[in-house]
Design a protein around this nucleic acid. Structure first.
Length: 369
DNA sequence: GAATCGTGGCC
DNA sequence: TGGCCAAGATT
């Protein structure tokens, strides 16, 4: 690697740290350096905005204040605390990792790279963040903010999507890192990315790095980092059943862990095939998944929803079982739940939206509509 | 290396 | 309004 000019090094270390000292936000996970709290916050913040993670952090910590309380909790309760935040593998991994830490590390968050990195849900970024912020070790935590800031400072022409580009930036960050101040410096770089060097409309005029920033010099800071084209987002039509039994309870099914929304509860149903009617598709899905024949009632509602890599139009219909007793295929958990108990179950957003429409529409309107 | 995996805010 | 994006990890 070519040597780093002193002016650049000074700007991205001393000047940046001075800027951070004045502008750091009082975020709830910055009240101390407790490794458990730092680990939880870093996991919550993966691909998630600070403002969105904030209330979840408060609730999660009050519900699971210690590593041991998390390790001894039921996964369903952990998922309930994560409900609505997305990327639910984070919650499943957190739960598994907590049990591993209690079992193999005496309940203390590991302070060595190898042990930390080996935990489920802990990648390069999170390991570096915990080791630097909680334990004061010299690891550069390179997230999207850091890559954006550095790619602009250098006016990097290489696409940021490429692994080789990311490797280069990680190596550069590790080389720039002021020894003994990694925790502050990592947070400073990320804070700069969040508050000043933002993806859109960066505040270059108030940036502590403006004198050395090559993107700023071109006048086109927003053009960096360079990104490749995205794939088109597919769309599916999905239909689910609000199946009611004689006591007025509804049938919920638990999504298998390891799949999308794994561990969350939903109304049973599935994708509509091309050329297939909604009612036809729903009867087929319920036959295949639960081994029941149903009679369809009135529609519950329609929901548009976007997931991470596709979007759906979700239709719901009331159903009554005509024949058979529902049994989850391959041991999938299913459960009859009284409507007033449904709030105890972790549901995905799309299901919540659909049930919200049900709450708004009186029974009579559904039939007359 | 490329796919998969959520949700909400922004313009 | 629809695409972009956010304190990434896993397979």
């Amino acid at each position: 690697m070519s040597p780093i000019p002193d002016t650049l090094r000074r700007a991205v270390t001393e000047d940046l740290l001075a800027w951070f000292a004045r502008h750091r936000r009082p975020l709830p996970w910055r009240s101390d350096r407790d490794p458990y709290r730092i680990w939880i916050s870093e996991t919550l913040l993966q691909q998630t905005r600070t403002q969105q993670a904030w209330p979840y952090f408060e609730r999660f910590l009050s519900r699971f204040p210690t590593l041991e309380s998390l390790a001894r909790a039921e996964l369903d309760d952990v998922l309930k605390a994560w409900e609505g935040l997305g990327y639910y593998a984070r919650a499943r991994h957190l739960h598994r990792a907590a049990r591993e830490i209690l079992l193999r590390h005496g309940g203390r968050i590991p302070d060595r790279w190898e042990a930390l990195r080996a935990l489920p849900g802990v990648g390069d970024y999170t390991a570096a963040a915990v080791l630097s912020i909680a334990y004061g070790q010299d690891y550069a935590a390179v997230d999207g903010n850091v890559m954006r800031v550095l790619s602009r400072v250098l006016a990097l022409p290489d696409p940021i999507d490429r692994a080789s580009t990311r490797r280069t930036l990680r190596a550069l960050a590790q080389e720039l890192l002021p020894r003994g101040q990694a925790g502050e410096w990592n947070q400073a770089l990320m804070e700069l990315g969040a508050l000043v060097c933002r993806p859109r409309k960066p505040h270059c005029a108030s940036c502590p790095l403006q004198a050395v920033c090559r993107a700023r010099a071109t006048g086109r800071s927003e053009a960096y980092p360079i990104k490749g084209a995205r794939r088109p987002v597919p769309h599916y039509t999905v239909v689910v059943g609000l199946i009611e039994d004689a006591q007025g309870r509804w049938l919920l099914a638990r999504r298998p862990e390891g799949k999308m929304l794994g561990g969350l509860w939903e109304l049973p149903g599935g994708k509509v095939r091309s050329g297939e009617e909604l009612a036809e598709a729903l009867r087929r899905e319920l036959r295949e998944e639960l081994g029941i024949e149903v009679r369809l009632g009135p529609p519950v509602g329609v929901v548009e929803h976007t997931y991470s890599h596709f979007r759906i139009t979700l239709h719901g219909f009331r159903c009554h079982i005509q024949q058979g007793t529902p049994e989850g295929r391959e041991g999938q958990d299913i459960r009859w739940v009284a409507p007033e108990e449904i709030g105890h179950y972790a549901l995905a957003r799309a299901t919540q939206k659909l049930l919200a429409q049900l709450a708004q529409a009186p029974q009579g309107e559904l039939f007359s509509g």
